[in-house]
C-alpha cells in the first residue's frame, strides 16, 4: 500500500518559491528521505503533506485519504523542524496532552507513555519539566509526542538538527527500530550521511522541483566509476572503450571511466581480457549520495545559467 501519493502537488507563496508539481509515491514500511539545498522547498512540501499549508494546486493521498483530512491525521505523527512545547508541563503531562489530542483513552495513554519514553531513551524524566530539558532532550520528547498514537506514517523534519553525534546515532537507531515495527518514515534532512545510512528511497528537490527520485541503491549505482590499470593504453583501446562509457581521466597506464551501471563492470573486464590486454587492476566505485546530490543540484544550476 502507498502511504503517500502526490499528484502534481504545488504550494507557492504569491506565485513564487515553495514546491511545484511534485509527484511522489512512498510505499509502506520504508524510510523515505527528502533532500535538497536550503530554500529548495523541502519544508514547504512536508508542511503541505501534514496539512499545515494549503496546496496551491494538485492533490495528494495520505494513507489513502485526501490531504489534511481528519481521518489521515489519526494515524500520522509529525516532528516539526522548529518547535517548542509548553515548558511548564512535565514530560508525562506533555505526553498525556498529546495522547488526549490524539483522542486516546486514559488507559491507552497510561500504557503508551512508558513505552515511548523507553523508545526515545528518556525513561526516568517523567516528572521533569520540559523547560528544564536540554535541546537534545527536547528533540527526543518532541519525537515521543509524535509517537504517542503509534503512527503508521511519521514525518520527521530535520530531526537531528539539535543533536550531538551520539544523539544522531541514537536517532538513526530509533528510526531503524520504527521501520522494523512497520512504521513508514518520511525524513526531511540536509544531512546526506544520515539519509544515506537509513533511507530506502530518496527524493532530491531543487528550486521547488523534484530532480531525482528512486531507490537509494538505484540512485547510487546509476553512475559508476571504474579505474582500470593495463599494460598499455593505446589510442585504439581508447576508441573501443568509449562504447562502454565516458572516459574521465587517463594517467600513465591507468584510465578512469564512467559506466552506466554496476552490471557493466564484469562485461567490461571480460571485453578487456578478450581483446588481449593485460589487466593489472580494476577498481569499481559507485557514487556517494553526496556525488549524486552535488551533480543534480549543481547541474540544475548550470542549466539555469546556460538558459539565461
Amino acid at each position: 500500500m502507498e502511504m503517500i501519493t502526490t499528484f502534481n502537488l504545488t504550494k507557492q507563496y504569491k506565485g513564487q518559491g515553495g514546491c511545484r508539481e511534485i509527484n511522489l509515491s512512498v510505499p509502506s514500511g520504508h524510510i523515505f528521505g527528502l533532500l535538497g539545498p536550503n530554500g529548495a522547498g523541502k519544508s514547504t512540501l512536508v508542511k503541505t503533506l501534514v496539512g499545515l499549508l494549503q496546496p496551491t494546486s494538485g492533490s495528494a493521498l495520505i494513507l489513502g485519504n485526501p490531504l489534511g483530512s481528519y481521518k489521515c491525521r489519526e494515524k500520522i505523527g509529525f516532528l516539526p523542524e522548529l518547535f517548542s512545547y509548553q515548558k511548564w508541563l512535565s514530560a508525562e503531562e506533555l505526553l498525556t496532552l498529546h495522547g488526549q489530542l490524539y483522542k486516546m483513552t486514559k488507559q491507552a495513554i497510561k500504557k503508551r507513555i512508558p513505552e515511548v519514553l523507553t523508545l526515545i531513551g528518556l525513561t526516568g524524566t517523567e516528572h521533569k519539566k520540559v523547560g528544564s530539558f536540554s535541546k537534545g532532550m527536547q528533540q527526543r520528547i518532541g519525537l515521543a509526542c509524535a509517537l504517542m498514537n503509534e503512527p503508521k506514517l511519521l514525518f520527521l523534519d530535520e530531526p537531528t538538527s539539535a543533536l550531538d553525534p551520539l544523539g544522531r546515532r541514537d536517532m538513526r537507531e530509533i528510526m531503524l527500530n520504527l521501520k522494523e515495527t512497520g512504521t513508514t518514515i518520511f525524513l526531511n534532512s540536509h544531512l546526506l550521511s544520515e539519509v544515506e545510512a537509513v533511507c530506502d528511497q530518496v527524493a532530491i528537490i531543487n528550486k521547488g522541483r523534484l530532480v531525482a527520485v528512486g531507490e537509494m541503491e538505484e540512485l547510487l549505482t546509476k553512475k559508476c566509476e571504474v579505474e582500470i590499470e593495463l599494460d598499455t593504453i593505446s589510442p585504439e583501446f581508447q576508441r573501443e572503450i568509449k562504447e562502454w562509457g565516458k572516459i574521465l581521466a587517463i594517467q600513465n597506464n591507468t584510465l578512469q571511466i564512467q559506466v552506466a551501471d554496476k552490471e557493466t563492470v564484469p562485461l567490461l573486464a571480460k571485453k578487456i581480457i578478450e581483446a588481449g590486454y593485460k589487466l593489472y587492476n580494476l577498481h569499481y566505485r559507485h557514487s556517494s549520495l553526496e556525488d549524486v546530490f552535488v551533480q543534480l543540484v549543481e547541474g540544475g544550476e548550470q542549466q539555469d545559467v546556460d538558459h539565461s
Binding site: L52, Y70, F83, S84
Partner: peptide, 12 residues
C-alpha cells in the same frame, strides 16, 4: 513558537 504545528496535525 511552533507549538501550534504539533497541535494542528492531530485529529482536530
Amino acid at each position: 513558537s511552533g507549538i501550534i504545528q504539533t497541535m494542528l496535525v492531530k485529529p482536530l
